[in-house]
Computed example of a mutant assay.
Amino acid sequence: MSERHAIYLSPPATHPLAVLAERWLGRGSGRPSLGGYPDTTLEAWTAEPRRYGFHGTLKAPFTLTPGRTLDDLDQAIAALAKGHPAPPALALEIAALGPFLALISRTPTPALDALAARCVTELDGFRAPPSARDLARRKPETLSPHHRALFERWGYPYVLEEFRFHMTLTGPIPEPGDRDRMKAALTDLFTPVLTTPLSVEDIARVSQSSPSAPFQEKARFRLLASPDLPTGGPDS
């Protein structure tokens, strides 16, 4: 079975940040033209994040282990979410992460890090061992010994103490000059929707029907309301 699932932190589809980010990635209409680059270049630079959608990963994509169902998974996510306080709102900024550009938090995110760690560890019983294709995609021979150990144990190398929350906006932009230029352009584009910190009230399960298909949100799960957040409605 080629269907994969992941746990994301992402604003609701109607949130101004989500609307703009999906337009930028080419999943919504009217991609902005930035930096004086041709549309074909922007299309190439956003190809990989476009497939995954606008998000911050809490548990990386995985296939279900035999004998477990999506209902089982959704019930487990719902139980985790109901028992975990919503992290503080995120003040976001554009940054370079190696050759990529992404939105990151301006300040440390220990509460969010703890939520990601719970998603990784407590939902791991639903993750089937990586396939040969998964192993080849990750190129484990290029990983450090520590990252390889995390990959072999949890199916992804950047988890637990190696986790850093980010919401990817581009694939690799090899030339530093191009990267700096796009960082400035994306900062100008996104600043109007970043003036208010992003509230974190729920998490989402997304799914991909085949390796080439885009990930799509399938369910949202409300986190336990923190004292500084209004009480929301029932889980999706």
Rank of each mutant, 00 (worst) to 15 (best):
A18C: 02
T41C: 11
A204E: 11
S131E: 11
F215M: 03
P214N: 01
R133T: 14
P197S: 04
D228R: 12
G177D: 15
P16E: 07
R23L: 05
G171A: 07
L97N: 13
E162C: 11
A86D: 10
T170D: 01
R27F: 08
P211W: 06
P140M: 07
A149K: 10
P61G: 08
T14I: 08
E201H: 09
T63V: 09
E93D: 11
V159P: 11
P192V: 02
T187S: 11
L189G: 03
T170L: 03
A116M: 12
G177E: 15
F126A: 12
T187F: 08
F151E: 00
I203W: 04
P234N: 07
P230E: 00
L25K: 06
L224P: 02
G36R: 05
P234R: 12
M182G: 04
D228E: 13
L70A: 10
A184S: 07
T231R: 04
D113M: 07
A128K: 04
E201L: 14
F221K: 03
S10Y: 00
F126Y: 15
I104H: 09
T109F: 12
A136Q: 12
H146C: 07
D235G: 02
A21K: 13
G30V: 04
L97A: 12
L198G: 08
T46A: 13
T69I: 09
E201F: 06
T41H: 13
H84Y: 13
R27H: 08
H55L: 10
A96R: 12
P227H: 02
S131T: 15
R133F: 03
P130A: 07
A128N: 00
L101M: 09
R50P: 05
A132D: 14
I173V: 15
V206D: 03
A132E: 14
T14M: 00
F62V: 02
A149H: 05
A95G: 08
T196S: 08
H166W: 02
L143D: 00
R133E: 15
A18G: 01
E175W: 04
A96I: 03
T63P: 01
G83I: 05
F190N: 06
P176S: 04
P38K: 00
R118I: 05
R106N: 10
G56A: 15
D235N: 00
R118S: 09
P214F: 02
K218Q: 15
T65V: 08
A219V: 07
